[in-house]
Design a protein around this nucleic acid. Structure first.
Lengths: 153, 153
DNA sequence: ATCACAAATGAGAATAATTCTCATTAAAGC
DNA sequence: GCTTTAATGAGAATTATTCTCATTTGTGAT
């Protein structure tokens, strides 16, 4: 039974990176990568499993965890924890900017970010090759400011 | 049996905040707060439990979770996820700046931060009352840059 | 100080999330 | 096509977290 039947219009460069690092190109890995490439942001392991299974039915849960770990190692994806939910995965390039309410968990995303310019300085200062960043501000949202102090969501 | 026996040189203002929000001041809560005040950063729930039990022996695990949730709601502490470990708790004031290696998980902390100035702008733009922030850059550390691509830790 | 009441607690059960184990499969290079 | 070895899926095992419920204990009123 051939599984190559799935025609994935995958970004070939990611496959190259996997292969270059000595990893095999397998249907479950392709499925997970495809899911993240396509749907992208903030999927949790369960959701990634489900969507990967839509592409490659016999994909197992353990393999999804293993693949996410591998892709994280390779700097392709990254777990992110926002609010009180478990991890969700995002592409490890690009930036994420959140405004998080400590009281109700409400999250606002914003764009403009002074951090971009900091990247260069840090690169030379610490020798890191920086690929992305996360900037989160915490505080109390307008709604929670006006309502009673001892409430939730 | 009186449990008030524990003399805690606690910052009274936190007690005030708890009381003001209608919560009772109990030995386990005092113990957890004391642990975080004193030791402060990056303790996980297990460690917080152990240290709280050193202050108030009969403190239960569930209560630690409940107290951490409460303190998070009140904006006193905040869970933080760094590397592949579970949550650890930090005081919700002040800022945290990390440089995280995607490959080996190495973490470098840095100080200077352009984000402070952004806070004001965001406050007026979104109406949040901002109390702290987290800025994390992700990339590859010097050590991992020089070593082979397919390695870990 | 005592009382009444609701909130908070501890113990352990229940659940959910993640990791491990191991026999089987299949990708990659020859 | 054949060999080697990494990768896989299934489910067991483990770990972390939440829930349940009977009991205790702060708190404000008396």
């Amino acid at each position: 039974m051939r599984n190559h039947a799935i025609i994935l219009p995958m970004s070939t460069d990611l496959i190259q990176r996997l292969r270059a690092a000595g990893y095999k190109i397998t249907p479950p890995r392709l499925a997970v990568i495809e899911v993240i490439q396509r749907e992208g942001e903030h999927l949790n392991p369960q959701e990634i499993l489900e969507q990967a299974q839509a592409l490659h039915a016999q994909t197992g849960r353990a393999t999804v965890y293993r693949t996410l770990e591998l892709l994280t190692q390779l700097g392709i994806v990254r777990p992110i924890y926002v609010g009180d939910n478990g991890p969700t995965y995002i592409r490890a390039d690009g930036a994420h900017h959140h405004l998080v309410c400590s009281r109700c968990g409400r999250i606002v995303e914003f764009d403009a970010c002074a951090a971009d310019s900091m990247g260069c300085e840090l690169e030379s200062r610490f020798g890191f090759h920086i690929t992305s960043h996360l900037l989160e501000f915490y505080g109390i949202c307008p709604q929670c400011q006006t309502s009673d102090a001892s409430q939730s969501q």
